[in-house]
């Protein structure tokens, strides 16, 4: 099954929009999103499930999109970090990542933001250790993680908002 033949149709809701694409059935969800649907927020850092840069939500659950065949998610609702901000308004978590310099190159952000969001949904007031555990499925080579941990803790309930910066 190669070349242009043998393609299959994939239906996904991507960041709120219903989309269809004709894809190679071998495609990973990551590649279908990036190459066929123009959703570039998830990144390919390893393709082996180790770095988390490809993280998306599939029907609400966070998932590493490099570990999924796109066809298996046919009909699902996929969200990337591109639709985290509702109506252009950054979420407190996105705001905190920006305000506390919780990223440098930003390549790891899909994994970090989703893992943090997922944690805070389950555990609104996590300890530092819980934050470190929650993001440990993701790799960041730039920050040394401290600023990420601080950003997540600043969003713990009751909300503490940083107002640093210009």
């Amino acid at each position: 099954m190669t070349g242009e033949e043998g393609r299959v149709e994939l239906r996904l809701t991507v960041d709120g929009a219903e989309r269809t694409a004709s894809i190679d059935p071998r495609s990973l969800l990551l590649d279908a999103l990036r190459d066929e649907l123009g959703a570039i927020a998830p990144k390919a850092g390893c393709r082996t499930g180790d770095c988390g840069a490809c993280t998306v939500r599939v029907d609400g659950a966070i998932a590493k999109s490099c570990l999924r065949l796109a066809v298996a998610d046919d009909g699902c609702e996929v969200r990337t970090t591109a639709s985290m901000a509702v109506g252009g308004e950054l979420t407190p978590l996105q705001q905190a990542f920006w305000d506390t310099n919780a990223f440098q190159c930003g390549f790891c952000l899909s994994g970090m933001l989703f893992a943090a969001e997922d944690l805070l949904e389950r555990t609104p007031s996590p300890s530092e250790t819980e934050v470190r555990e929650a993001i440990s499925g993701n790799l960041c080579r730039c920050t040394g993680y401290d600023a990420i941990v601080a950003a997540v803790l600043s969003c713990a309930a009751p909300p503490v908002r940083s107002s640093r910066g210009a």
């Binding site: 570039i40 990337t80 591109a82 985290m84 901000a85 950054l90 990223f103 930003g106 933001l113």
Partner: peptide, 19 residues
């Protein structure tokens, strides 16, 4: 401690890398 000028582009997944 001025924050990144284009930080919103990054946290909303819109930054464009080579790939």
């Amino acid at each position: 401690p001025v924050r990144r000028q284009d930080g919103d582009v990054f946290v909303t997944g819109r930054a464009v890398y080579t790939a």
